[in-house]
Design a protein around this nucleic acid. Structure first.
Lengths: 210, 210
DNA sequence: CCATCAAGTGGACACAACGTCCACTTAGCC
DNA sequence: GGCTAAGTGGACGTTGTGTCCACTTGATGG
């Protein structure tokens, strides 16, 4: 138990203060294999149909190994999605208007956000469907971010809290897939959402009509 | 084959012209039991967690008997939902304005539709969650009806097809449940949706700006 | 009232996916 | 090169699905 500790810090060698014990080389290799295999499987067919066993087999590893790091399909999809969502979140927080801050008109910021989300959806619906099927959407950290963003944009409307979920609903991956399958192009979807953004947030209908 | 025909009508007894062969008494009794049991189970907990076996057991019948009439959970929920949805559809087609026809302002009709759907959701979310989880929503006949209705209301906007799914998205049962769980009252949800309806459909922004 | 038989019943069965467990292997360090 | 914890993978138990089929029963005509 007290076996090995770092001579300088006194901390156990396996936990070097900066974080959890380092990942072994074979583990890292398998992680990469899993992500690559999953990406492909999600893209190939209905993401909801992809099973943990499928992924393990495609990655050439055992089920136990897969479960070691990812408790379910959703967590794998989220891992693949993570960097893309972070990039968008960064743009919103620090990027240039109209997506980023320093743009006075909330309606245009919402429209820009919608457009950016459509781009994200177009590229990664399969991952979003793998990660957020049904109500699971609301349990992701990302949803919390989008929610806060939209709520702030709607801050001068009567009930921003209630509006936020409503305004985010059309961005559900199932909705997007449905529209694309109906033959509606990303641009047409963007236009519809822009109309929505302007209709709801534009004009001066302040919180409490003086 | 030509065995037995009704002496008065001349029609085969097993197929009385008005429909398929009559349902036996025990079958009818069990059907009623199934629906009653399912209604209760759906309301009790998460509808997605209710299994066919649960329903069979609660109804006091065997699994085979249950599967005989209902291929899956969704079909049972839909059977329970059917009359309520029909009633609303009837109101829309033949009822009084603003929900029914003969109301000139599409924005107000959409707002009325939203309000009616919120009432339906409030009373039967559990059934809707049992019937329409995820993408299954789009495969129901009811969705087709709502879609057509909204598309017609949006007919003078640039792209009614694209708008319709977008405008229906906030009525997804998962969205509704989420909002209610966030502590948002049905009335607040209605108000948000009314703002949406008016924002998108009110005003004169005709299809092709003269 | 009874005989008939198709409609109806229910439990056994085969299957798919889940998630866990643990004996074995191996990378990394001394 | 030996040690050890991290990592591996497949066997296993569980749960839910959907089908199948031998048996039961309600309705009907005699």
């Amino acid at each position: 138990m007290t076996k090995r500790t770092d001579l300088l810090t006194g901390l156990p060698v396996t936990a070097d203060g900066t974080g959890p014990p380092r990942e072994r080389a074979d583990a890292a290799r398998n992680r990469a294999r899993v992500l690559a295999a999953a990406e492909e499987l999600f893209a190939a067919g209905d993401p909801a149909e992809v099973t943990m066993e499928d992924i393990a087999k495609a990655a050439g590893i055992g089920r136990g190994t897969l479960y070691r790091r990812y408790p379910d399909r959703a967590s794998i999809a989220r891992a693949l999605l993570d960097e893309h969502e972070r990039a968008l979140q960064h743009e919103i927080l620090r990027g240039a208007p109209p997506l980023g801050p320093d743009e006075s008109d909330p309606a245009e910021r919402l429209a820009a956000f919608y457009a950016a989300m459509v781009d994200l959806l177009e590229r990664h619906v399969h991952l979003l469907l793998g990660a957020e099927t049904g109500s699971a959407r609301y349990r992701t950290g990302a949803y919390g971010f989008w929610f806060t963003h939209v709520r702030v944009l709607a801050a001068d409307r009567p009930d921003p809290e209630a509006l936020a979920d409503t305004l985010l609903a059309p961005l559900a991956p199932e909705v997007y897939r449905r529209q694309r399958e109906q033959g509606i192009s990303p641009d047409r979807i963007k236009n519809g959402l822009t109309a929505l953004a302007r209709g709801v947030l534009a004009g001066d209908r302040p919180k409490s009509p003086e």
